[in-house]
Design a protein around this nucleic acid. Sequence first.
RNA 1: GCCUCGGUGGCGGAAUUGGUAGACGCGCUGGAUUCAAAAUCCAGUGGUAGCAAUACCGUGUGGGUUCGAUUCCCACCCGAGGUACCA
Length: 944
Amino acid sequence: MFYDHKEIEARWQRFWAENQTFRAVYPSEKPKYYALTMFPYPSGAGLHVGHPLGYIACDIYARFKRHQGYNVLQPMGYDSFGLPAEQYAIQTGQHPAVTTEANISRYREQLDAIGFSYDWSREVRTSRPRYYRWTQWVFMQLFDSWYNREADRAEPVSTLVERFEASGNQGVRAACDADTPEFSAGQWKAFSAAEKQRMLLKYRLTYLAEAEVNWCPELGTVLANDEVVNGVSERGGFPVVRKKMTQWSMRITAYAQRLLDGLQGIDWPQPLKDAQTNWIGRSQGASVTFKTQPGPGQEAFDIEVFTTRPDTIFGVSFMTLAPEHELVGKITTPEQKDEVEAYVVATARRSERERMADVKTVSGAFTGAYATHPLTGEAVPVWIGDYVLAGYGTGAVMSVPCGDQRDYDFARHFGIPIPNIFEGVSVEEEAYEDKQNAVIANSGFISGLGQKEAAMKVIEALEAKGLGKGTINYRLRDAVFSRQRYWGEPFPVYYDAEGLPHLIPEHCLPLELPGVEKYLPTETGEPPLGNATRWAWDTEAETVTENARIDHKTVFPLELNTMPGWAGSSQYFNRYMDPDNEQALVSSEAIGYWKDVDVYIGGSEHATGHLLYSRFWQKFMYDRGWVPTDEYARKLINQGMILGTSAFIHRKAGTQIYLSSGLAKGEQTEPIRVDANLVNASDEIDPEAIRKWQPQFAEAEFRTEGGVFKVDREVEKMSKSKYNVVNPDQICEEYGADALRLYEMFLGPLEQSKPWNTAGLSGVYGFLKKLWKLYHQGPDRSFEVLEGEPSAQNLKTLHKTIKKVTEDIQAFSFNTSVSSFMICVNELTAQHCRERAVLEPLAILIEPYAPHMAEELWHKLGHTTSIAHVPYPEFNPAFLVESTKEYPISFNGKVRFTMELPLDLSKEDIEAAVLADSRTGEQLQGRPPKKVIVVPGRIVNIVG
RNA sequence: GCCUCGGUGGCGGAAUUGGUAGACGCGCUGGAUUCAAAAUCCAGUGGUAGCAAUACCGUGUGGGUUCGAUUCCCACCCGAGGUACCA
């Protein structure tokens, strides 16, 4: 009986689906285990072998936990809102919902073919109204919340209104807009409804604000900084300009400290924690006010700066503002006006990336204005320079050239003095940036002090003068939450006659995306939803209605922006716990049981996007009492990237002649990528196949060497455009899902990026066949196991494997456990093992890796229910006890021979036995050994 | 520049955390089987020298600690990813 993977795999996949084998049980008495992989965006290209790497690892772990008796929740779904579907809709006019649906079907087929143990009854799709009603719901709760810094948590806006009514906003410590004015209870009560709304908006956790954004006219949308590459959009490569727009923002900065603190308690990879820590960018220092010295008829302005080195304040010899700083236009003197304006224009043309990347060129302009040093009273010239960014801190710095290299370079370039305020240090060549050893000099009352003490005293002095205070600054910005797109969640928001936002009633959710004729922005530059003719809110009927009925009395226009990609993924892990709940995002009972994600597997590229935003939402949900934990994933694993092997053929320059790899040397050729799937294991390709592949090669001439045509190979990121993708379907067809699963794991450590080479699959396929043979040693290779006692050798092999594989799974070291299985099967084959007492546990052991084969063998072994929930084999160390050890005997650290000695021998006896051996005498050539090191059970080393 | 990860045969990788470097697999070489091929099985396979026993070299480079270093320390080189004039 041969190993017919196709028939076996199809049969068990059907069995699992029909029996709902992997359904997560709720309620349940068993302990829970929640294994989650980041859900995919269903693109039109389908899955390639890079995608399932993390899925397979997660599935192995989930299956392992099932054997350990856990009630496992392993769901899957689709992050199905996104730009590609919208771009496709723009090109073809097809509704994104239609193409998304088709893509999901294809993904599902591919996922099913790999044999994942998902509970598909819990599937979520972020683009489904019954899912996104809860995304909209979270938005509404954020709108209805403010951050109470005293309690250090979010609270309903109603508690804020109570405070305002009682005592105004004095004494309210909240995360709010910087320009929030102070008001008393009386003033609050006197505010009109609109004024109250406007004021509350300054406190809400999601609020409208003018934000400078990366505007991409071509895409008609705003891009995140990380979506802009070299000044053009990552997708499509369109130009990007900076523009101010009114946007929904998320007050994530309120959570900066807690997002930082929360990292302590979760088992996430350190590099990922580092990335988030740097992104949040906490720095302690002081904010200092420099007052400008007004010219005749001018007013004085405050220039607010943040510095991490208040101790260097006496070293200030100039100030630098970002060219975009709002004061630039106000303080520049008439004489400097032309120069400054020219510089501002020049800077605006440079992308932020460009400005940052260019470290070498120093540029700037003098405004002609001076500010007063808050401690010395001296006049400090105010410059502008593009090394200061408007978006960070206050967009202005106090420049201390002797203590900061960038300030130093700037000062040098423009001939600004570089006063030295450090004891015993020369600043002739470069700035002195060492904080630890700095001793401050030439600095009045702080001369002679160290950095920390000096900083403290300066802050005290500034506070006394009312010109500064100690503060903590975060690099983290509030997150812009509006997208000028169609294919995203609509905001449950309408605008009144004053342009103020109002939520639609909660019971009206979901607010479904309207149909539109065109998916492009409108002619007037409004988002695609501006094309909808039925996109107004009737407050009386509580329903969406025709735009024509808008009267700003009972019928109002709805928000035209949609939510960004990360909205739908910020709570999906909780929704899986209770996916059909119509009353709540998740019931407190369900989340009380499932609680949080025990292991979360996904790419590190989401470090500062999804993984930060979702932590923010979770903390918010926790504050408001909807979830029991403020971190949703205890453990996180980053899987590495799979690289593809591209194939290149050589085209003789300027001709249609292609040369086999060996003939190309010394010739002028251009490398052309061809479909790597057409190349065989020996790097040969059939020219006919190339001709058929693309019409451009139909008439080409191919010069072979030795009758074959060879290609050159190169390893690079697996991608459709590089023609190096390997499709999992073909592999499942040819080698089977179990072989694919084993091979993906066998490739190398999960976290590392590694190249894909399909040729290696024959190795794991051969292993599966050997495994199969172990159970088919009867007449004519029929299935047969013996009921007798296994040999000590058999048991040793089995238990060695149980130990190793169990340890490996727990350490997420799947590559090494595949090796262990191979060694195990090789040994049992050599031992002619046929005993049930060994083969039955072996089937369970391998089930997480090769579930189809294991299920088949399990049923052949006489069982009628699935292997999935069978208890994991228990390791018995008694079978591994050894009585002797093959000791390596080394001389001066080099192993020369080995000796088999009893393990219970004492150090002295080992030494005696080794010294008595004739080979020891040969090695020492009569010299007495200087020293003998004996490590019992490990090694003997003789120094001679 | 900074942060993080990595560098071991022709290739993917392993090494019990300081104790026989190269497990396991691919590839390659030779052999068996076959009309032939596929598949399968057996043997070999880090480099250099040697018929061989064996010797020397060998985990990016250079130092160091140690009886002993792929593993620990110092300095550096290279590659990948992230991030930024973070004041």
